[in-house]
Design a protein around this nucleic acid. Structure first.
Lengths: 343, 343
DNA sequence: TTGTACGCGTTATCAA
DNA sequence: TTGATAACGCGTACAA
């Protein structure tokens, strides 16, 4: 099927006996144009079903109205919700979002950023891969004067806008809640990976204990990959060693889920024998038995914030792009897995 | 910060004392060029950090290497997994994916398609909104000779490539499995919405019963929105009416989850008293207690297939675009919620 | 094998 | 307020 020839500003111009420049100005809301011509142009544009060619516009103006968005994994609730948030803001401003994923592979991350630059996106919103150690590809983005916003997984090595949640506070809330429920021997599942967010969660855990007069016990801290299997293994170790513990605060819902399984398989009751708190607010946490207390990171709002920071940077003078770090306060979602005292 | 001036083919041409056309040909692998010039061009391109300007290329060639992808909801596991699948294939072919969501609102769907066309995407991959009744916006896509691939939610009103799963077969498998486990009074949760996929699941349920000599009983069929609350309500109705039933096949995991809660709250055992099968293979189904038997739709593979159909259409002669309907065979994921007989 | 010349559709600049 | 002209960077007939 042959393309129906699209109408251009020249077609409109010809019909009205004006020039393309006039039409362009009328369509772009340029003030230096008479009301009558503007109306005529708009009318004719409608009649001819004119649709602007964004490619031509992009070539001339240097702005594509495209945002490159890079996430580790598209099909994880946390990330897809952030994409959703970004997209809501972007679309309302007539921007489109190109999504790519790194799968935590450094090369993919580099390639995606390069592809974004080739596609001439107006800027990038990204979460750094777990294994990323250097940031030259991101620096290139900044060197070109393009806005770069990092979310969740960020780095102090890049001077650019960021949005994170207060992981420390989330962990502090979670641990304090367990203490308030009467727990005193609280295990913690974390990861050996050198990512700030987990260090912060660990710090929140330790400080909450200390603030409540409980001495942190390193025998109760387990490091792994925070997947379900890790949670199972940690819980089994705890039980085998007959380590004394009455609660687990896991830095990930998945590991918490693994622990829940093992604890129940061993005939112990949740929360009576072991109270349990996770982190992420994954959708499944409300469906477990008992439902899992966890920390909500407000991913959609995080997406909104990332997009807003992006447009702030985009609209600021290039010489002095405003870089800003936004910290979102998390919320403890209290469910049955940690509720020993009836409220 | 000022944009570091990007190098263009003209810069390369100047350095080598050839013309831009020569450089263009060398870079595009055009055979009508000498080996020596080709090598020189490639070498200089590397030295100058040349990156092709896809916008200019798109304007000239009419191909943007962009795919518009429209889903009802980005942050639902099923859809984000399909996006992932599409993206994997697309990126490997140097295409990028622009994602938009309709939120099941018809206007959003129209706007998204229009935005895609304005962005001059090379084609569209979409799932139709629940409330969409007419398809003019999609017809426009086809009239322009652009590839359009529909997935999951499709319509016979559009003559274009589609990929769906065999909902009938999924339901047939699920119901037959329950029968094989000894169930004879099997309830079904479905929806009143006039979407083919649910009709097909209902048909598979009925036929499986009949094929095994069980008379379908309409008193065991419940219609709602298939959300968790609907599942709860249906299960409560079943129990209150003292309706005789020994299994539930729900057309959605969410409603199955609601039923699981109510059944357990009433002191009944799963699967001994009530066997349970859902549909979707949502991530949470492996974390429920007991884990939920369900139907896997292979969303990532569905994304791969959709992308492959897309590129088939893109590469076929415009006069005779090959339209093809691919049906993916689902898989019954058997878990404890339905396993009455130990294998 | 390479060069010439032009156009893709829009916008920016300058002049009127 | 409008017009004329050039340019964004690339690709492609056509010519040499």
């Amino acid at each position: 099927m042959e393309n129906t020839k699209k109408t251009t500003i020249h077609d409109i111009a010809a019909k009205l006996n004006v020039t393309a420049s006039t039409v362009s100005r009328a369509l772009k809301g340029n003030p230096r144009i008479s009301d009558s011509t503007r109306k005529a142009v708009l009318k004719t544009a409608r009649e001819l079903n004119y649709e602007p060619n964004q490619i031509a516009s992009a070539l001339r103006s240097g702005r594509t109205q495209l945002i490159g968005m890079l996430v580790p994994t598209i099909n994880r609730s946390f990330f897809s919700s952030i994409i959703r948030g970004v997209e809501e803001v972007a679309n309302s401003l007539d921007y489109r979002v190109i999504v790519s994923q790194s799968n935590e592979v450094f090369e993919n991350e580099e390639n995606a950023v390069r592809a974004f630059l080739n596609a001439r996106v107006d800027g990038i919103i990204a979460s750094i891969g777990k294994n990323t150690q250097h940031f030259d590809h991101y620096k290139q983005v900044l060197e070109r004067g393009l806005p770069l916003v990092l979310f969740d997984r960020t780095t102090p090595q890049l001077h650019t806008s960021q949005v994170v949640i207060d992981d420390y506070q989330g962990a502090y809330l979670a641990t304090s809640h367990l203490i308030a429920q009467g727990c005193v021997k609280i295990a913690h599942f974390t990861t050996e990976r050198k990512i700030d967010i987990y260090k912060e969660r660990y710090r929140g855990y330790v400080n909450a204990l200390e603030d409540h007069g409980i001495a942190p016990n390193e025998a109760l801290v387990f490091s792994g990959s925070l997947q379900l299997e890790d949670g199972r293994a940690h819980a089994e170790t705890l039980l085998q060693k007959k380590e004394n513990f009455d609660a687990i605060f896991s830095a990930s819902d998945y590991a918490a889920m693994g622990a829940m399984q093992v604890v129940r398989e061993n005939g112990l009751k949740i929360p009576e024998d072991v109270a349990l708190v996770g982190f992420l607010n994954e959708p499944f946490t409300s469906f477990t038995d008992p439902p899992l207390t966890t920390v909500n990171q407000f991913p959609i709002e995080m997406g909104h914030t990332a997009a807003n920071l992006f447009f702030n940077a985009l609209n600021s003078e290039k010489e002095k792009i405003v870089t800003k770090k936004t910290v979102i306060q998390p919320e403890l979602v209290i469910r049955a897995s940690s509720l020993k005292k009836k409220p």
